[in-house]
Amino acid sequence: MSTMDVELPANRMRIRPGQILTWTLLLLGGLVMITPLLYMFATSLKTSGQIYDLKLIPAAPTLDNYISVLSDGRFMRWFVNSTLIASIVTVSNVFFDSMVGYTLAKFEFRGRYFIFLAILSTLMIPTEMLVIPWYLMSSQLHWIDTYWGIMFPGMMTAFGTFLMKQFFETVPDDFLEAARVDGMNEFTIWWKIAMPLVTPAISALAIFTFLGNWTAFFWPLIVTTSRELYTLPVGLSSFSVEQSIQWEKIMTGAALATIPTLIVFLVLQRFIVRGVMLAGLKG
């Protein structure tokens, strides 16, 4: 292979003023978002006496808080509760939202548009307004202070249905018709053919749902009374209502709680970005 001199374009390294402005804004935005996170990790490495010392790097960092929180049985219980609830709700959303989204995208039936609008309209109702009917339902079904009570409002979501419908609309009908001719029933076509074709959407939905339920606070706080059923955010908040606010423990718990979400996000972020792009939605 012959070598040749390559002349680089003269303006290759030239930076436009617009780029400087963009980078500055992005940097500021990034700082605003990362600073609380850094303080959270910094505080988790401090003793209770050093809490109000706002240094980012503690003078004498200690892992005592981590040992204390991890050896506290309650924290592990809440961690397991949150993992269990977030996982079940995620699986449920992926299953039901996909099924409804697929039906709305790929089947012609009377009232389809109306049903889709009805589902979509629930996106406009804030959670705070829904909490009262949810609580009344839970009460009548004897689900107060149970896992079912925590999970049932999120088992299927309008957002997930909408997201999946948009994705299924991009799946060519030929794939489904070929499967029909090959003898598959409608459930198998959905499960074996359509679902694998929308993997980015499933990943995005799974991440959104898992993160949303992992950090859910308001509804679990209302529907639970037993400490054993607390989720992690509710449990951590209880550190501040006992004798005093134990900031170092709250921050340590919060730092530990971010680990699973970071792992989930880092592993699946390429899917989430693609998923959001294809759905034409902003995160």
Binding site: P172, D174, F175, E177, A178, R180, V181, D182, G183, M184, I193, P196, L197, T199
Partner: peptide, 20 residues
């Protein structure tokens, strides 16, 4: 009869072979 009960096979314009 449903397509699968007719024992016919179809080749589509876009091939419709499953990418996964």
């Amino acid at each position: 009869r449903e397509p699968k009960q007719r024992n016919i096979a179809m080749v589509f314009q876009n091939y419709a072979i499953y990418p996964h």
